[in-house]
Design a protein around this nucleic acid. Structure first.
Length: 192
DNA sequence: TGCACGATGAAC
DNA sequence: TTCATCGTGCAC
């Protein structure tokens, strides 16, 4: 299980460090997990794409907890997204886990933030959970980092002005489980 | 109290 | 490109 010190760094460093690690949910005795291949960093209150940039609220309260806690929220009325709280207490920064390479017990695809929560059965009831607690059923494990890390703009944050253009999304180079990749391959194949 | 919109995914 | 679907945040 990853120690709290790993999470207690700036979100941009945690986003890189988590690539290659394994996300595990022991779901009613069943292990469901995958290797992290894609992340996004949300740097803090000044980051206009960060949910907490508009201030503290019931939804964003978990981002103000100690690093190593979970921030799980509902998006578009139907998908849960899983984040790890980073940096320091009372400072709202987090890393969104965007894609996994499935390893065990996954219920469906894991190449997207909503999909991986569905596949690991992670929901808002896991919000505020301490991932660094020895008794937690949801946690991360260390793993070998990818040989190459690519970076680019975050997805779906066009509203965030200049913050939308910053390269705060990280992924394992040429990994087929990075979000959008398998869909792009399918398109190419069908085109001939 | 009402309403526009989103850190998405899937169908067309 | 469009739509499903609902909690949040902000306007009124």
């Amino acid at each position: 299980m990853l120690a709290r010190e790993v999470y207690a760094q700036p979100a941009i460093d945690v986003a890189r460090a988590l690539l290659g690690c394994t996300l595990v949910h022991v779901d009613d005795g069943v292990r469901r997990g995958g290797r992290i291949v894609e992340t996004e960093a949300y740097l803090g209150p000044h980051d206009r794409a960060c949910h907490a940039s508009k201030g503290r609220s019931a939804r964003t309260e978990s981002m103000f907890l100690e690093p190593g806690h979970a921030y799980v929220y509902l998006i578009y009325g139907m998908y849960d997204c899983f984040n790890v709280v980073t940096d320091r207490v009372d400072y709202p920064a987090a890393v969104l886990i965007r894609a996994l390479a499935p390893l065990e017990g996954c219920l469906g695809d894991t190449d997207g933030p909503g999909k991986l929560c569905r596949a690991l059965r992670i929901t808002r009831r896991h919000d505020r959970l301490d991932l660094a607690s020895p008794t937690s059923s949801l946690f991360l494990e260390a793993g070998p980092p990818p040989a190459h890390i690519d970076r680019g703009p975050r997805v779906g944050v066009d509203y965030a002005g200049s913050w939308a253009r910053r390269h705060l999304r990280f992924w394992a180079r040429r990994d087929p489980w990075v979000s959008g990749v398998s869909a792009a391959i399918r398109r190419l194949r069908s085109r001939g």
